[in-house]
Simulated assay, not measured.
Amino acid sequence: MMSLSRRQTRQITLGPLKIGGGAPIVVQSMTNTDTRDVPATLAQIKRLARVGCEVIRVAVPDEQAARALKEIVSKSPLPVIADIHFDWRLAISAIEAGAHGVRINPGNIKGRENVARVIKAAKERGVCVRIGVNAGSLEKDLLRTHGGATAEALVESALRHLDYIVGDLGFENLKVSLKSSDVWTTISAYRLFSERSDFPLHLGVTEAGGLIPGTVKSSVALGILLAEGIGDTIRVSLTRDPQEEVRVAYEILRSLKLRERGPEIISCPTCGRCEIDLFAIAEEVERRAAQMEAPLKLAVMGCVVNGPGEAREADVGLAGGKGVGIIFRKGKIIRKVRESEILEAFFAEVDRLLEERGGSHAF
């Protein structure tokens, strides 16, 4: 089996997590609740933790949101990053509230003295800082020099901030992102930066879009970069429930054999032989499997032709027929049930397998 070698970066800390330096690639997401609504934000963070999210970022648009962070951080099962734009004072308030990290865009926090204030507070509290460079908010002089938001402009912006924060301020608990909504600009920027710095990189395509376009753009950009060994944390940005971001992120990592979490689901695209509602069945299997951690291989097949034969490597599988379904394990049929019972029988068999392996019930 092919294994990818990862680019060696320096290791930093984000709360209890180690990032870079050979640590596992970290999956991140962002809440879309109003941060000032503490119960709603915590509820979403807990849902995201259940599907494998490892770091959560929350928007901090004002002082009320910054104050809410104190309770959010104290009750969150995940390290919390405060997302800051424009107002350096919000970054300091977030740090004082206990945030494990802050994401700042030095390009829109005006004045080096204000950046220095944020870094001083982060250094005193052991907080991680992400320098988040975005194509949409680059410094005007770089846009003029490079003729727009090019990959070279993104990299020059990031290195400029690193020179100041590391060289002048002596702060190194940093990671960097260089995001564009354009796939090739994103790929080129991360490649160029990787040649010039060993700071850990947070990968993402900004404003990638809805479920289908966002998944495709993120999979292409992140897949290429990860295959080249670039990237230490990732977020798949989707105009969707953030739980979908986590699911897509893990599927990207799984496809490259970089990380496994939860089942791999094999399902056929359906054809004229299919006589069951396979779309609904597959969606339900995916929904329930998102709560699992065990790396099983599950098959959801539309007919016996594409059942045990095509999916013989599956740990547990189902296949439909006219009014009936079969449950199989490693290509061997073990049960035939009515169509209405197929999901119940399938989940029961998954639970049975996990018990045999010494695990807990899955569903």
Rank of each mutant, 00 (worst) to 15 (best):
M2K: 14
S3C: 04
L4N: 07
L4D: 05
R6C: 03
Q11K: 14
G15D: 10
I19S: 02
G21Y: 10
A23Y: 08
V26G: 03
V26L: 14
S29E: 12
M30S: 00
T31W: 09
D34N: 15
D37P: 01
V38M: 11
P39V: 14
P39D: 12
I45W: 06
V51C: 15
E63W: 04
A65P: 05
K70F: 04
E71Y: 01
E71K: 15
V73R: 14
L78G: 11
D83M: 11
H85T: 01
W88N: 04
R89G: 06
R89L: 05
L90N: 11
A94W: 12
E96C: 02
H100W: 07
V102F: 00
R103W: 07
R103T: 00
R103N: 02
G107I: 00
K110L: 12
E113P: 03
N114L: 00
A116L: 01
R117A: 14
I119E: 04
K123R: 15
G126Q: 09
V129L: 09
I131R: 03
L138D: 01
E139H: 13
K140W: 07
D141W: 10
L142R: 06
L142N: 02
A149V: 04
T150I: 05
A151W: 07
A153W: 01
L154G: 10
V155P: 11
V155F: 13
L159T: 11
L162M: 14
D163V: 06
I165G: 06
I165N: 07
L169M: 12
L169Q: 09
L174V: 11
K175R: 14
V176E: 02
S177I: 09
K179H: 15
S180M: 13
S180A: 15
S181N: 14
W184S: 11
I187R: 04
S188P: 00
Y190D: 01
Y190Q: 00
R191A: 10
S194M: 09
E195K: 08
R196F: 12
S197Q: 07
D198L: 01
L203S: 03
G204L: 02
P213S: 08
V220T: 09
A221Q: 07
I224C: 11
L226R: 01
A227K: 08
G229L: 11
R240K: 09
D241F: 14
P242Y: 13
I252K: 08
S255V: 08
S255K: 08
L256E: 04
E260T: 12
E264Y: 15
E264G: 00
P269D: 06
C271G: 06
C271A: 11
I276D: 05
I276H: 02
A280G: 06
V285N: 03
E286P: 00
R288Q: 14
M292G: 03
V305A: 13
P308E: 04
G309H: 07
V316P: 06
I326E: 04
F328Y: 13
K332L: 03
I333F: 12
R338I: 01
I342L: 15
F346R: 01
F347N: 05
V350F: 01
L353E: 09
L354C: 09
E356D: 13
S360L: 07
